[in-house]
Design a protein around this nucleic acid. Structure first.
Length: 108
DNA sequence: TACATGACTATCC
DNA sequence: GGGATAGCCATGT
């Protein structure tokens, strides 16, 4: 049985804070966790065992690109999910990216 | 313990 | 602007 590391749990929890219709970047998550492991974050997200519970599709690249997706339909599926939540995607990129961009609230 | 890999980002050409 | 290279941290083998 694979033991999830604390790092992954933090990442999933952070994604859970993303409101519907909004998207965030791996960089923001890493920053929220007080780290620079963008790649580690991406890896953790890809390994998320709480797929339906964790809105991994709301996480995109810093360029506004949808990035990748380990789900069934791959990136295609990710885009559909985003569109379904009100986020328009064009050519694998988020429309009005900065507008839909969501920043974590470190000081609560 | 050491090397290789990755749902990334930034820089150089 | 587009493609390739390097740097980054954590995980897996």
């Amino acid at each position: 049985m694979k033991k999830e590391t604390l790092f992954q749990q933090k990442v999933w929890k952070a994604m859970d804070l993303i409101p519907k219709g909004k998207v965030t970047t791996y960089k923001e998550i890493a920053k929220f966790l007080n780290t620079k492991a963008y790649q580690a974050v991406g890896s953790a997200v890809g390994k998320n065992p709480n797929a339906p519970k964790t809105p991994c599709h709301r996480v995109v690249n810093s360029d506004g690109r949808v990035g990748n997706y380990s789900g069934k339909g791959g990136v295609k599926r990710k885009i559909e999910l985003l569109k379904n939540e009100g986020v328009e995607v064009k050519e694998g990129k988020i429309a009005d990216f900065e507008n839909k961009m969501f920043y974590f609230n470190k000081s609560s």
